[in-house]
């Protein structure tokens, strides 16, 4: 098999703080790859660098053979992404958000119309398609984001905590859909999640990072064996320790805001 994502010695600093620390790994073509780690581990930052949104401090990236820094357009053609943070236009309707995305990604009109209907039905928003997104509940917005992210079929699909805040039914629905997409069209899936059973069920391979560093990479079975645990969740905790990250992250965020307030660009 050949790899479709190659990361070598990837580092990203914000001021003195190192969010991603000398990370190296690769993802095989057609693989479902789970990228796990506690809050603030550097998952989203890594995805931003892979998807041309953020420049690395140092290191090398190849996405489908292209470099996200110098060949942005080629790279952008190869992936689709569902962001962790909201990215909808609240002042547009659900349908308009979908349409906007479809046109922006050059999905041909008949296919676009058909898929918009299909996906809005999958996430049960078809009845609400002409409502402004600002009147949607959090979960409805999330579902719309997912429907929109699946509208075009790229080579690589990045899913940054796609199922956060969704009910179990919808989560199952979405994961089965992603799995089918992976099987049928050979789309490579790069996902992050804090639901370990999702990662266990979905992923061919799992990488765990903490404090920006790669701690372990392998199959879920290998993880359990190595840590002598019976679930991926226990293996994850064994690997990353028991401390809660929110406090550390908050301390860092506070420092960051402090720096900003004093005019430093972080």
């Amino acid at each position: 098999m050949s790899s479709i994502i190659d990361v070598k010695n990837l580092t990203r600093r914000f001021g003195e703080f190192t969010a991603v620390d000398n990370l190296s790994f690769s993802v095989e073509k057609g693989e479902i790859f789970a990228f796990l780690g506690p809050n603030g581990a550097g998952k989203t930052t890594t995805i931003k660098m892979l998807t041309t949104l953020l420049k690395p401090t140092s290191g090398e990236i190849r996405l489908d053979g292209h470099d996200p820094i110098h060949e942005q357009n080629e790279v952008r053609k190869s992936f689709g992404i569902i962001f962790q943070d909201p990215s909808l236009d609240d002042e547009l309707t659900a349908y308009e958000n979908m349409e906007f995305h479809g046109v922006l990604y050059g999905v041909e009109k008949t296919v676009r119309r058909a898929r918009i209907e299909e996906f809005l039905k999958v996430v049960e928003l078809w009845d609400r398609k002409n409502d402004l997104v600002k009147h949607f509940s959090g979960g409805m917005k999330r579902r719309l984001e997912i429907a929109r992210g699946l509208l075009h079929h790229p080579k690589i699909l990045f899913l940054d905590e796609p199922t956060i805040g969704l009910d179990p039914q919808t989560r199952n629905h979405i994961w089965s859909y992603v799995q089918a997409l992976n099987k049928k069209e050979g789309i490579t899936v790069f996902l992050t999640t804090h639901y370990m059973e999702e990662a266990d069920r979905m992923a061919d391979r799992v990488a765990v990072i903490d404090h920006g560093k790669l701690i372990a990479i392998g199959t879920s079975a290998e993880f359990k064996e190595k840590t002598k645990t019976s679930t991926l969740e226990d293996a994850f905790i064994a690997l990353t320790g028991n401390t809660i990250r929110a406090e550390e992250v908050n301390a860092q965020d506070a420092m960051r805001m402090h720096r900003r307030a004093w005019g430093g660009r972080s």
Binding site: T51, T52, L53, N73, R76, K77, F79, I81, F83, D85, P86, S87, L88, D89, D90, H101, L104, Y105, G106
Partner: peptide, 17 residues
């Protein structure tokens, strides 16, 4: 506002000049 509400990301990753 697009930046703050997050919509900017959606346009930034599009393979459009």
């Amino acid at each position: 506002w697009d930046r703050q509400f997050g919509f900017l990301k959606e346009t930034l990753v599009a393979a459009v000049s």
